[in-house]
C-alpha cells in the first residue's frame, strides 16, 4: 500500500522540555490512524509538525508523497487540518466561512459556491448557513470547522481531538462523518484521548506516552498485548464446579459464586476446545462469559505516570 504519512525519528523539544522523543509513523492511504495518548503526551505537537505548523528538531516525514521540510507547500496543498480549538471566523456566517476557504483554494466563484452549499447540506448546516458562526453551538462549530477543512478536497486529513468537549450525540455524528470520509478514499490521522474512539474508528492505533510510541497495532492486536483475557464459567451444582476445577487446572476458582476463570483470549478455536473438554466430561455450565481486555486495560498497562521534565 502507498503511504499517506511516513515519518521517521521525529523529535521536538521546547527549551529543555522534550516533547517528542523520536517517533516513527506509517499510515497507509485510505485508512484511519489514531494517535492515542493522555493529555500532555505530545499528540498536538505531532500534529503540528506533520501539518507544517511547527518545525521538528530532527527526523523526516513525507505526507502524500511530499517531503515536509523540502516542499511544505506541496504538503499544505494535499492536507486538511481541523485543530483542537475551532478555527472558524466568528464574524462570518457559516456559508461565508466556507466560501472564504473556497476562495483561498482559488476555486473560482461558481465552483466555490457549489462546494460550500454541498458541504452545508452534508453537515446539516443549511438552516444555520446565514447565521454568524459566533452563534453556533459546540457541535455545529465542529461540523463547520470540519466542513471548512474539506472544501479543498484534501487527500490526508488531520483531526486533533475531533470530539473533545462534544456531547455523546454529536460525537456519534462526528464518527459517522469520519467513516464516510475514509470510505471516499481519504486518509485520516486523528488524535484522541478516548480509547473508545480509537477502538471505534481506527485501523491502526499508536499509543503515545511522554513523547514516545509505547505500542502500535490494530485495536485487537493491542488488546492481545495485555494479559487479563479469560473465559468465565458459572456452575449451579457445587459437585460439577469441583469436577470442572479439576479439569482446568490453571483456572481461578471463585467458590462463592461458583465461577471458574479460565485464562485465554476467547478466540474461536480456544473456545471450541474449551467447549469440547466440557462436553467430554459431561459438564454443563449454567453460564459462559468471555472477557476480552478492553483498551482501557491496554492504556493503563502501557502508559506510565508522568516523569519530570516532559509534557505538552
Amino acid at each position: 500500500m502507498v503511504a499517506a504519512i511516513k515519518a521517521t525519528g521525529l523529535r521536538k523539544s521546547y527549551g529543555d522540555k522534550l516533547v517528542l522523543n523520536g517517533i516513527d509513523l506509517y499510515v497507509p492511504e485510505g485508512t484511519i490512524f489514531a494517535l492515542l495518548g493522555p493529555n500532555g503526551a505530545g499528540k498536538t505537537t505531532a500534529v503540528r509538525i506533520l501539518t507544517t505548523l511547527t518545525a521538528a528538531d530532527a527526523g523526516q516525514a513525507r505526507i502524500a508523497g511530499h517531503d515536509l521540510a523540502e516542499n511544505p507547500d506541496g504538503v499544505r496543498a494535499a492536507i486538511g487540518v481541523t485543530g483542537q480549538f475551532s478555527a472558524v471566523d466568528d464574524k462570518l456566517t457559516g456559508r461565508e466561512n466556507l466560501i472564504l476557504m473556497a476562495d483561498l483554494h482559488r476555486l473560482g466563484k461558481v465552483e466555490g459556491r457549489r462546494r460550500a452549499d454541498a458541504l452545508l447540506a452534508r453537515f446539516d448546516l443549511e438552516e444555520a448557513a446565514g447565521k454568524l458562526a459566533a452563534t453556533y453551538s459546540g457541535g455545529m462549530r465542529r461540523r463547520l470547522d470540519l466542513a471548512m477543512t474539506l472544501v479543498g478536497e484534501p487527500r490526508v486529513i488531520f483531526l486533533d481531538e475531533p470530539t473533545t468537549g462534544l456531547d455523546p450525540r454529536s460525537r456519534r455524528t462526528m464518527w459517522e462523518i469520519i467513516r464516510e470520509l475514509v470510505a471516499g478514499g481519504v486518509t485520516v490521522f486523528l488524535t484522541t484521548q478516548y480509547l473508545e474512539e480509537a477502538d471505534e474508528l481506527a485501523d491502526q492505533i499508536a499509543v503515545l506516552d511522554h513523547g514516545r510510541l509505547v505500542a502500535q497495532g490494530s485495536a485487537a492486536e493491542l488488546k492481545r498485548r495485555v494479559p487479563g483475557g479469560h473465559i468465565r464459567l458459572r456452575f449451579a451444582d457445587p459437585a460439577e464446579f469441583d469436577r470442572a476445577a479439576g479439569l482446568f487446572a490453571d483456572a481461578a476458582r471463585d467458590e462463592e459464586s461458583g465461577t471458574l476463570r479460565v485464562p485465554g483470549d476467547g478466540d474461536i478455536p480456544a473456545l471450541r476446545a474449551l467447549l469440547d473438554r466440557l462436553d467430554g466430561a459431561a459438564l454443563r455450565p449454567e453460564g459462559l462469559e468471555i472477557h476480552t481486555p478492553d483498551l482501557d486495560d491496554v492504556f493503563l498497562a502501557l502508559t506510565g505516570p508522568a516523569p519530570k521534565g516532559t509534557g505538552r
Binding site: 501539518t51 507544517t52 505548523l53 507547500d73 506541496g74 499544505r76 496543498a77 492536507i79 486538511g80 487540518v81 485543530g83 480549538f85 475551532s86 478555527a87 472558524v88 471566523d89 466568528d90 476557504m101 483561498l104 483554494h105 471548512m148 479543498g152
Partner: peptide
C-alpha cells in the same frame, strides 16, 4: 489567538 491563523498556515496560500 483565535486559531484561524493556524488554519491559514496549513493551507497553500
Amino acid at each position: 489567538t483565535a486559531g484561524i491563523v493556524d488554519r491559514f498556515r496549513t493551507m497553500a496560500i
